[in-house]
Simulated scan of single mutants.
Amino acid sequence: MALSDTVTTVQQTIATTLGTRSLLGTNGLAYLFFSATALFYAHGWWTGDKRRTTRSRKRETNLDARYVAAGFALLLVAGATAAMVVPAGTHEYGVVSAEFESEQPTVIPVGQSNDVEYPLVNSGVLPVVSYVEPASDGVEVAESRRVLPAGGQAAATVTLHAAEQTGYYRRYVVEHRYLALLPVGVIDALYEMHPWAPIVAIDVLLGVPFYLLGVALLGTGRIRDRSRDGPSLLGRLGRRFR
């Protein structure tokens, strides 16, 4: 919850500063992640170019290519994890157990219950699997698992039960969300084991092939730059695609 609140606050601050809503939600998180990665690479290229122009002597820089591949794989995994963790979390309903009828869905006569809708929105470009479960007493959820396509919307029916005594009571539901990169049955089985198990499996599914692809492109040796006029890492990658 602290991580989700922090990321949401940062997104809202940047979106307000730039005057755009496109940086909010899951898509906005992806844009910010891509922008930060691009700025990081541009900064490294710029500072490296300045050092090359100010030095006349030859130099040698050693960097293990596997560390480079692992670093980009970790960035990808971090972005995927944030896309699953940030939109999820715990939601609170304030229920008033009253002795009268009311049009407010959370003001419920003593001992009775009422249904409310929990909105589910997928603003990303990948389908997601969402689970909404009770997180306190006095709550029931019908059809807790929903599969949302890219840009899809749905609603889970949450039944709130009023206490036998009048007063104000807090009811909670918790949502867990996962990128639908595994079969739904596999995600169901992993979710039954632990809510974090699907996240770990999806991160491994993304990170390991990306790392292996990076190693295949960069090799397993050290990246060396012996001359100020030598080809850059980007240039060497380009040659491998030719």
Rank of each mutant, 00 (worst) to 15 (best):
L205G: 03
E133Q: 11
E140V: 11
T17Q: 10
V141C: 00
P105W: 08
P105L: 11
L24I: 11
L206K: 07
Y118Q: 15
V204P: 02
S97H: 05
E101T: 13
T166D: 03
D64M: 07
Q11G: 05
V116K: 06
I199G: 00
G71V: 06
P149A: 12
A163C: 03
L218I: 13
N114V: 10
L76I: 13
P198K: 02
A42D: 01
I108Y: 04
F210C: 08
V10I: 15
V200N: 00
Y41R: 07
V121G: 00
N122F: 06
E164C: 05
V125D: 07
E164L: 12
R240C: 04
G214D: 01
S35E: 08
V110C: 02
A83E: 05
I202H: 00
H91F: 12
G221H: 02
L179E: 02
T106H: 04
Q11R: 04
G235M: 09
L234Q: 08
Q104Y: 12
R21W: 05
H161A: 10
I14P: 05
F34A: 15
V107W: 06
G167D: 06
V208W: 05
T90S: 02
G214E: 01
R228L: 06
T220H: 08
A156Y: 06
A38C: 12
V174C: 03
G79E: 04
R240V: 15
E175Y: 07
Y168C: 06
S22T: 14
G151K: 02
L75Q: 03
A88E: 04
P209R: 02
A189C: 03
P231M: 12
M84P: 01
T106W: 03
A189Y: 04
T81D: 04
L217W: 05
D49M: 13
L32I: 10
G221K: 08
D137T: 14
Q165S: 15
A162G: 01
V95W: 03
A154F: 06
W46A: 14
F34C: 12
Y131E: 04
V116H: 05
V186P: 00
I108R: 02
P109W: 02
